[in-house]
Design a protein around this nucleic acid. Structure first.
Lengths: 183, 183
DNA sequence: AACTATACGGAGACAACCTCCGGTTCTACA
DNA sequence: TGTAGAACCGGAGGTTGTCTCCGTATAGTT
């Protein structure tokens, strides 16, 4: 890769990251190119379409979530560790409006890589939590991530209500039925 | 309203309904106009923007959900009645890809009317279910609808997996934690 | 310094949304 | 029934955003 190409690539990635945070992932790609000081053609050469750019941005962020998962393996309560990690995922997705929708869909293409890395990162936490008996054995990582992403999305659509995610998450974690069923 | 205007209005509404079901609510409005046999200008005069058209379509569908809610008031188990109704809402939203996103957002504009009608329709069911003690008292109708819509949305994004909604719904209803916390 | 593979960048094709207004059609009233 | 004009029709075209194509510029090599 030529030096100028590398420079532009990095610059685009960083500008995209910021633009996604500020304006959401629907931001005009031309604006990103402009801010990065390159032409729109250059952007499209490096990132063939919007999702390619998104996934390139997000994949970088996943390191911190992987790290977080490993740290949380030391947490005493396995269920709480799992929940804490899923919430961290939510916070991350929430930072980029539109990311959770992509994660949720991610049927093919590069975005799938993000999803897969998340699965791997959280897998150990889920296994441990199940073994502890605190988590329903029929809960899969895929569904937990879908559920989390779905709630993030719901929260995104209600920006005026800051607590939306927490309330919905609380409902899902504890169930809507009163827990009293025997307690 | 002039007779021809009324005809076009009705025709547009019906074509929109079908197009939404077949192609999702992202379908090109020009196509709807074309199928209805009118110009794009006519469509936009009757429905100033896409959400106006969507809400006009959806509002009609709500009657059946209102009816359903009243029928379910006769159901023995209040919690099951509530869940059955929410699931009916989900089925309805699921029929129109993109509807649930609108319902969820519905901060202003005509779409709010749909949301409000849903609240009213389900309110009695929720109250009854809470009084029976089977439903967490801190669960509000707004959050339940948001949760339901969010799961519908998640399911929409995974069209290859038909059971997505049911699995997620099951997790949310029963909670992710094992119900055994004392049972 | 010359050469070539690589990268740049913007003009422009395309698609969708929405507006505007000249032309047409319906309806009310004489 | 004929007419006036209010209401409505419809598509041309402005606007915005996505993505492609290819002539031009440049980094890296010999």
């Amino acid at each position: 890769m030529r030096a100028d190409a590398q420079r532009n690539y990095d610059r685009l990635l960083e500008e995209a990251r910021q633009a996604f945070i500020v304006h959401g992932t629907d931001v005009a790609l031309e604006d990103i190119a402009k801010h990065a000081g390159v032409g729109i053609g250059t952007l499209y050469r490096h990132f063939p379409d919007r999702t390619a750019l998104m996934s390139a941005v997000f994949v970088r962020e996943l390191d911190s979530l992987t790290d977080r998962a490993q740290l949380l393996m030391a947490e005493e309560d396995p269920a709480q560790a799992l929940f804490a990690w899923l919430k961290a995922v939510a916070v991350h997705s929430g930072a980029y409006r539109g990311m959770s929708a992509q994660i949720m869909a991610a049927g093919d293409g590069e975005m799938l890589q993000c999803k897969t890395r998340l699965h791997q990162a959280g897998g150990a936490l889920l296994t441990r939590a199940k073994e502890s008996g605190a988590i329903r054995p029929d809960a899969g990582m895929g569904d937990l991530l879908k559920l989390t992403s779905a709630l993030v999305l719901a929260a995104e659509k209600n920006p005026e209500d800051r607590d939306t995610f927490d309330r919905l998450w609380n409902l899902a974690i504890n169930g809507i039925l009163t827990p009293a069923r025997g307690a």
